[in-house]
Amino acid sequence: MALWDELTGQADAIAIVEAAASHDESSAMTHSWLITGPPGSGRSNLAYAFAAALLGGDEATQRQVAARTHPDLGVLSTDRVIISIDEVRQLVAASQFSPSVGRFRVMVIEDADRMAERTSNVLLKALEEPPPRTVWILCAPSEADLIPTIRSRVRSVRLRVPDVDEVAALLVRRDGVDPDLAANAARQAQSHIGMAHRLATNAEARERRARTLETALGIHRVSDAVFAAATLLELAKADAEAITTERDAEERDSALRSLGVEPGGTVPANLRAQIKNLEDDQKRRATRSLRDGIDRILVDLLSLYRDILLVQLGVDSEPVNRDIIDRVREAAALAGPERTLATMDAIAVARRRIDSNVAPALALEAMLVSATRTTATRTPERG
C-alpha cells in the first residue's frame, strides 16, 4: 500500500510532511505539528500517514499504524463531546518514553479542538519541553480552535477542500465504487471524504439523506414543521445508531473476552465496574454520534437551500442535489431569494444552538417553524 493513498487533493501538505519525515534539509523539522482543515478534508489521514513515515514508512509499519498497534505510536481519539484531562495526562506520560523500535515516538491527538483550556494547559507543558525523539501531531479544524500558547509552539499544515472529482476518484480507486455512484456521493457529501465513502457504500445512508430532503420540501405549514422536526430527529437517531451499535457490541464482546467471561456468561461482581465504565463511555459516544448525525442533516438541508437559492438567482452552477433538481426548481418558484437566505440563517442558528447544548428537538422545531414562515407555499386567500 502506498503511504499517501488515503489522501486526495493535498499535494502541498504531503510535500511538507514528507520532506520533514525524510529529514530533507529544506524542511524545518519540529517536534510539534498541527494539521488543520475543514471536516472531511483528511486531517487524521494525513496525521497517521505522517506518523507512519516518521516511524519507518515500510508496509509493516503502515499496517501497525493503521491498526494503532505500533509500539512507538500513541493515539488520543474520542467520540465524545470533549477530551478529558485524564486522557491527556495519560498520553503525556506515555510521550516521555524513548522509542522502542523506530526513530521517533509519535503522539497523535485527533480533534484537539475538543480540549478545555485546563486540559490544553496539561498538553502545553509537554509541547514546551518534549523529549528529543518525541513528535506531537495535533488535528483541528483551524488554528483558532486551540489556545494561543499551543498555537505558538506548533508548525501548522493546512489542508484544503478537495474537488468533487478528486473525492470521486479516491472512492473508485480505494473502495472500488462504481464511478457514477462515486461521483454522486462525492457531490452530495460536498467533498467530505468520510461522508462520501458512507454514501457510496451504504444504501441506508443514501435513503436517510433522501428522506431528509423530502421531509424539508414537504413543509408548508407550522404543523408540518413540528412533524418534520420529529422526523428529522428520528432520522438522526437511526443514523447514529447505525454507526455505534455494531461497534458497541464488538467492544463489549472484546472486553468480556479480555476479562475471561464466556459469551452469554454472567459478569462476576468484582468485574462489573469495568463493564459499567465501558457502557458509560459508549453512552457518551452515543451522545456525540447523535449530535454529529443531526449536524449532517443540517448540512444536507443547507445544500438543498443553497441549490434553491442558485436557481432563484439564475446562477448557472452545478447543483449539489442534481438528482432532485425538478423539486428544487419547484421550491424555488414559491418564494424569493431573501426568504431562502432567511431559512439558511435559521439552519445556521440551529447548528450553533445544538453545539451550545440546546435540546436538539427544540432547536430543530424552532428552525423549521422559521423556515415555514420564510418559504411556505403561497395559498390563495379565501373569500
Rank of each mutant, 00 (worst) to 15 (best):
D180W: 05
T343Q: 08
W33G: 06
R118M: 13
T266M: 13
A238C: 01
T377G: 07
A182L: 06
R114T: 13
D72N: 07
A249L: 12
V157Y: 03
R373C: 03
D248Q: 14
R306Q: 11
P179G: 06
P380V: 10
A331L: 11
A144M: 08
E246L: 09
D295K: 10
L76R: 01
T215I: 12
I16F: 10
I325V: 14
R68Y: 12
R378T: 04
G37V: 06
V88G: 00
A28F: 04
F227N: 10
A333W: 00
P38L: 13
S95W: 08
A169P: 01
P131T: 11
E250V: 15
P71G: 09
R351V: 01
P148E: 06
G218C: 03
R252L: 15
S289V: 00
G102P: 00
A60K: 13
H197K: 13
A28H: 12
G264R: 12
M29R: 14
A19E: 07
L181S: 07
A126E: 05
A67P: 05
V315K: 01
A51P: 05
Q64E: 14
A210C: 04
D111H: 14
M29N: 02
L3Y: 09
S27Q: 07
A168Y: 05
V167D: 01
E214W: 00
T149G: 15
E381M: 12
A240D: 01
A228Y: 01
E365P: 03
A342I: 02
A15S: 14
R211G: 12
A205E: 14
S356F: 08
A169I: 01
T287M: 09
A52H: 03
V164A: 06
G218K: 01
Q282Y: 02
V122E: 04
T375C: 12
I147P: 02
T69H: 04
S303D: 13
A230M: 00
E207S: 14
L259R: 09
E110C: 06
R105P: 06
R329T: 06
L127V: 10
D111I: 04
A112L: 08
P141W: 02
A361H: 12
R329W: 00
T340Y: 00
T287L: 12
R209C: 08
D86N: 11
R272T: 14
M107G: 05
I150E: 05
Q282S: 08
R68M: 13
L159N: 03
L362P: 03
I297G: 00
E241Y: 05
R288M: 10
F97A: 15
D253V: 09
E128L: 07
R114W: 03
Q64H: 14
P141H: 11
L127N: 08
I85T: 14
H197T: 14
F227D: 13
I308R: 01
P132N: 11
T119L: 03
I297A: 02
A19M: 05
D5C: 05
E87R: 09
P132S: 15
P162G: 10
D178S: 04
V267R: 07
V167N: 02
A376C: 08
L73P: 04
E262D: 11
P71Q: 11
P39R: 12
E110R: 07
P360L: 03
T69L: 07
Q282I: 10
A225G: 07
P39F: 09
D12N: 13
A333Q: 06
T119C: 06
E318H: 08
A238Y: 00
H192E: 08
T149M: 09
I16Y: 04
R327G: 01
R247Y: 11
L170V: 07
A210Y: 01
L304D: 06
K283L: 11
G57V: 02
A11P: 03
